[in-house]
Design a protein around this nucleic acid. Structure first.
Lengths: 152, 152
DNA sequence: TTGAGATATTTAGCTACGCTAACTAACATA
DNA sequence: TATGTTAGTTAGCGTAGCTAAATATCTCAA
């Protein structure tokens, strides 16, 4: 068999394994590139992502937020604490069950997300803008599939 | 304007900003889901990714590896140290320039990658296998675009 | 009604990854 | 030979993920 390139592409080009493999690699590289833009917005990606759920999906308990964001509760608890310290969300005690803490985005949270998210993906958006309409459309079609693969 | 859902979808559905935004979110969720599988393989994603470059692309200097992986040199230096400690790669001194350290995957590194990478993306691959052929093909077409957006 | 278990969150402590700054070693060159 | 440049390591910081254990509250059955 040929020396190296032969193994660079896993077995069958369109096989589920190959697709999964390349998708994984692409996702890693895409996010690494975006991390720097995130830095500029002054808020980390995990925090922004959690805040985004609150802004677009409304108030939630910390446990629910953890599930949506696919992290453990203590991790989300800390993210929430950081966002609260920054004035981006507030805790709202649940009247009927005092164990639960519902969190909701503050006005500052909404503002930061809308302004920040734009700035944050601006670099990516600029590159997306350079693609052809057909290419962009191809991506739009695939995104829901990716979310499905991500398990919601 | 309508209350919440109106702002849930950024402006124009096919606009570069909207595409970038949704893509970013999808990538985050996809990788979070995969991290757990990574854990099972006993080697972290960043290490596996660096090792993968060596296995599929051949020996490289640490600086080159850092550039490919889009991290700073000290970060890669530490990843390399960890991989070396695990016997997955070895340092090969450069005869002509004793400053540079070339690293290459050991047999164990090759073995782990081939076995591990399969296992690692197995869960994702299983879900990919559940997609229709058309859906799979759509993803295959988009992956190169994602890599391009990631800046190589 | 009280006591045992279940549930929601926090706290504590660990590992790992990313960064910058500062250091060492080796090379290049004036 | 001295000066500057380049490759890599070390040190130290912040953040994110995890598990285990603590705290507070709720539920429910004896």
């Amino acid at each position: 068999m040929p020396p190296r390139q032969a193994t660079a592409q896993p077995p069958v080009a369109g096989s589920p394994e190959a697709v999964a493999d390349r998708l994984h690699s692409a996702a890693i590289h895409l996010l690494r590139r975006l991390r720097r833009e995130d830095d500029a917005s002054g808020i980390s990606a995990p925090r922004l992502s959690a805040l985004s759920v609150l802004v677009f999906g409304g108030p939630r308990t910390i446990g629910e937020l953890a599930k949506v964001e696919q992290v453990r509760v203590p991790t989300m608890s800390r993210l929430v604490a950081a966002l609260e310290a920054g004035g981006l969300l507030r805790r709202v005690p649940d009247a009927s069950d005092r164990r639960v803490v519902r969190v909701e985005a503050t006005a500052a949270g909404h503002a930061l997300l809308h302004a920040g998210q734009r700035r944050r993906v601006a670099a990516l958006a600029a590159d997306v803008a350079r693609l052809t309409a057909r290419e962009r459309q191809a991506i739009v079609k695939v995104v829901p599939l990716l979310e499905k693969l991500a398990g919601r």
